[in-house]
Write a protein that binds this DNA or RNA. Structure first.
Length: 212
DNA sequence: AATTTAGGCAACCGCCTGATG
DNA sequence: GCATCAGGCGGTTGCCTAAAT
């Protein structure tokens, strides 16, 4: 038995939101909150699926959303965090108040990725110069990298982080990163606003990396 | 001025995970 | 333990606009 996606239900509208729909959604959430996204459209009188409402609210209508160009600091933070976490946009967004995962993802694909490619990096998941440098400078062999993977998995298991979020590049990064790179990240640690989870990764992969 | 191309971004899709019965 | 549901996430698509020809 397969689940029918809510958006496939007949009569539900798709595509760009109108100002009127935005208004309805905002006022409904302001009044009642969004306890149940699936039930919300019906309650609010919107011909949209719950997912669509949630996305619209989170990515566009939330009052605390910061719009406009990314600052240099934000750019820098994204590059750093992507180098550590890979495409975990929501985790990266957690460290950039007011920015959404979708916005960061779009920014990455349209600006940063291109810039990195221009500078000669073409490793699929290698986001930053840092990672590129780490890979170029590494003196660790494959077995070291593999043991780093094990270390990462053990840490994740012990600390209860979601397993699906383990990103192979993280272990690779940890295994391959040079001491210079550790230093560079540490130097910038203070200038980046890190979420709780990022602090966690920072402690595991950066601080512990220096002592191993 | 008209057409084509490229860039940017909003929105959708499908999968995964955790919660619940 | 299993099935189902709802929420969340990342990948991808497609539309709109600006720039180039």
């Amino acid at each position: 038995m397969t689940r029918t996606p809510c958006c496939e239900r007949m009569g539900l509208k798709k595509g760009p939101w109108t100002a009127e729909e935005d208004q309805i959604l905002v006022s409904h959430i302001q009044q009642y909150g969004h306890g149940n996204w699936r039930a919300l459209p019906k309650q609010a009188g919107l011909l949209r699926c719950g997912k669509s409402c949630r996305l619209r609210w989170i990515n566009y209508l939330r009052p605390d959303i910061k719009r406009g160009k990314f600052s240099k600091e934000e750019e820098h933070t994204i590059l750093k965090l992507h180098g550590i976490l890979g495409n975990r946009w929501s985790a990266i967004a957690a460290s950039l108040p007011g920015r959404t995962d979708n916005e960061i993802k779009n920014f990455w694909h349209t600006h940063l990725k291109k810039r990195i490619q221009k500078s000669g990096v073409h490793n699929g998941n290698a986001s930053s110069r840092i990672l590129q440098e780490a890979q170029a400078n590494t003196s660790l062999d494959a077995s070291s990298a593999a043991s780093s993977t094990v270390t990462a998995n053990v840490m994740i298991a012990n600390y209860g982080l979601p397993v699906r979020n383990i990103n192979p590049p993280i272990a690779g990064f940890y295994g391959a990163v040079s001491s210079d790179t550790f230093g560079e990240i540490e130097d910038n640690h203070g200038s980046c606003q890190l979420s709780e989870e990022m602090e966690f990764w920072y402690n595991i992969f950066i601080k512990s990396g220096q002592t191993s």
